[in-house]
Every structure is written in structure tokens, then in C-alpha cells.
């Protein structure tokens, strides 16, 4: 018996619906069809009237979720693809994110964003937008990398009184399995040391965690131990755990699947540089996707985003500095 990352997301939503009458799900094809990725499989049947198909109107989907949240509901929105959240961007960053600040009325909505690349996804079905949303005050941004976190963090997202951007990774949907659903969880806002090491710290999140762990295992054969930190949520970002790790290793490599300009890796380096400059034995490095739209062909795509090979190469370079 094992459970995939995708099934964990489905189970978390089933539990949220079962436990809290204020929860409902709204998004394109989420109803009887069960969602483009089947993340809401059979939920419409199990919870009649609470899992609603929406027209292709991301702006109105998010707007309606905000209105329902004002009235005390706790909607879960599925964006189908993170890429398609951009037509709803205005409602997310200007309406949902500002509501509590302006009015003291909380906006407990969860926006699920199937993120990141799959081979053949191309420019409009592969994007990682977590950095974009983290830029805005008033939003929480979660980027679970494990089956356990996908489950427990989605439940916590629904429970949080603020808008949560839940970046679930499409590549992990089917590729990642756990023996069972977790019974306890780390709180949101805490990073996790996924692999202990002494020579270099890799800070990463979401699908890149697994590429970084693979690179670390390979480099371990060469006698050097890499510590890997999984951020889990990028906003809030657990600077303490990152700085503590850099204090142990003296070297920092940040890895993200998003585009390189600004974003999570730049933010992590900025924080370590300002709060832990003296801990660094070498210039902090970062590795992101290339600064082009995401290519369709698998051969192009495989080198567009970081992978175990390119992370390994970057880590070896940094170890020699």
C-alpha cells in the first residue's frame, strides 16, 4: 500500500470537505470529471453540491472565492495549471492579498497551482510562479516537495486565515510515493534539512529537492557531503534554518526551477548575504531555469531547467572555490 503525491492532494481535499462544512472546491473541470489531473477524483460525487465546475474565467473564479471567504467560507480553487493563474492575477494580488490589510476581514482562500515542468509541456503548461506571488504582501506561498507535505500543508493551507498559493508540482504527482499519509507534520514556515552534510548547503524546494538529493548522493561517492535544505514554504521563508546550515558548511548553492531573474534563489542569497555574510567561505551561487520561455521538445526542456547533472556540476564548482 502506497500513496502518491497526487493522491495525497486528493485525500487532503476529501478530509477538508469532510471536516469543515465551510470548505468547497471551485475550478475548471473539477466536478464530476475529477479535474484535469484527477486531483478531485470522485469528490463531487462524495460531496454533492460542494465541488463546482467553473467557466474558463480565472479572474471570476478567484473573485468569487474572495466573496465567499468574506462570507465565512473556505474555498479551495484549482487553477488547472499555474500558468493559467495569470488571468486571475489581479484578483489574487490586488483583492485577496490586500483585503485583510485594508479591512481586517481575513481572506481564507487556498489556490492550488499545478506547477512546473513535464516533458512536452511547453511554454504555457510548465511554469513555476511561486516567486511572482511571494513578491506580494498578504499571501502565503507553499511549495511542498514530499507526499507528506503535500497532504499536511494543503490541510494547513485550508485552515490558515490568509490567502495561500499552493504550488504543487506536476512532475511529483505520479513520480513520488510514500507508504502512507502522515499523522503529524512540521508547521508551515519551517524548512527541513532533508539531508545532513558538512561541505556545502543546497537550498531548494518542490521538485528540485529530488534532483538536489540525487546530485548529493553522487557527490557523496566522491567523499564530499552536501547538506540539502527543503524550504517547504517560500513565504514565509525560514531564514534561520538556511543560515544555520550555511554556518555548518560555509558554502551555499540555491536551486529553483523558476526563471532566473529575481525570485526565490535570489531572495535566499540576499538574506544569507545580509544576515550571514561572515559564514560564507565562497561566493553564494544559484541555479535556475534558463532565461527563455520553457521549450516544448523534451531534449530542449531537459537542459532548460536544473537537473541532478547540472546541480552536481554547480556544486562541484562551488566546492573547488
Amino acid at each position: 500500500m502506497s500513496i502518491t503525491y497526487l493522491e495525497a492532494i486528493r485525500e487532503a481535499q476529501a478530509k477538508a470537505l469532510a471536516d469543515d462544512p465551510r470548505v468547497f472546491i471551485y475550478g475548471q473541470d473539477v466536478g464530476e470529471f475529477g479535474g484535469a489531473f484527477k486531483a478531485t477524483k470522485r469528490l463531487a460525487q462524495e460531496f454533492p453540491g460542494r465541488v463546482l465546475d467553473a467557466p474558463i474565467s480565472e479572474d471570476a473564479i478567484v473573485g468569487a472565492a474572495i466573496g465567499a471567504a468574506i462570507e465565512g467560507m473556505r474555498p479551495i480553487i484549482e487553477m488547472q495549471y499555474a500558468d493559467f493563474s495569470t488571468p486571475g492575477f489581479n484578483q489574487i494580488i490586488n483583492q485577496a492579498a490586500t483585503l485583510f490589510w485594508r479591512t481586517r476581514v481575513p481572506c481564507p482562500i487556498t489556490i492550488r497551482m499545478p506547477s512546473g515542468g513535464l516533458a512536452g509541456g511547453g511554454p504555457f503548461h510548465s511554469q513555476c510562479l511561486e516567486g511572482l506571488y511571494a513578491h506580494y504582501p498578504g499571501l502565503i506561498v507553499m511549495t511542498p516537495a514530499t507526499v507528506e507535505d503535500a497532504y499536511s500543508m494543503l490541510l494547513e493551507a485550508v485552515a490558515i486565515d490568509d490567502p495561500v498559493i499552493f504550488c504543487e508540482h506536476k512532475h511529483l504527482y505520479y513520480h513520488l510515493k510514500a507508504p502512507a499519509l502522515p499523522t503529524d507534520a512540521m508547521p508551515v514556515g519551517k524548512a527541513r534539512v532533508a539531508r545532513a552534510g558538512r561541505d556545502l548547503t543546497i537550498v531548494t524546494y518542490s521538485a528540485m529537492l529530488h534532483e538536489a538529493l540525487a546530485a548529493a548522493e553522487e557527490i557523496a561517492l566522491e567523499g564530499e557531503e552536501i547538506e540539502v535544505v527543503d524550504l517547504r514554504s517560500i513565504k514565509p521563508l525560514d531564514t534561520d534554518t538556511v543560515v544555520a546550515s550555511v554556518a555548518r558548511t560555509g558554502r551555499l548553492l540555491c536551486v529553483g526551477e523558476a526563471f532566473p531573474w529575481g525570485g526565490v534563489t535570489a531572495e535566499v542569497i540576499a538574506r544569507v548575504a545580509t544576515e550571514g555574510f561572515g559564514l560564507l567561505d565562497a561566493p553564494p551561487q544559484r541555479l535556475n531555469a534558463k532565461d527563455t520561455p520553457i521549450p516544448y521538445h523534451p531534449d530542449l526542456w531537459s537542459v532548460h531547467r536544473p537537473n541532478a547533472n547540472s546541480i552536481g556540476a554547480a556544486a562541484r564548482n562551488l566546492l573547488r572555490m
Binding site: A60, I61, V62, I70
Partner: peptide, 10 residues
């Protein structure tokens, strides 16, 4: 407008 819709849905 859609915020009003959502309030009505609630």
C-alpha cells in the same frame, strides 16, 4: 462583480 457573485454563492 465576481466578489459579489462569491458572496451570493456563500
Amino acid at each position: 462583480i465576481s466578489v459579489v457573485n462569491g458572496a451570493l454563492m456563500a
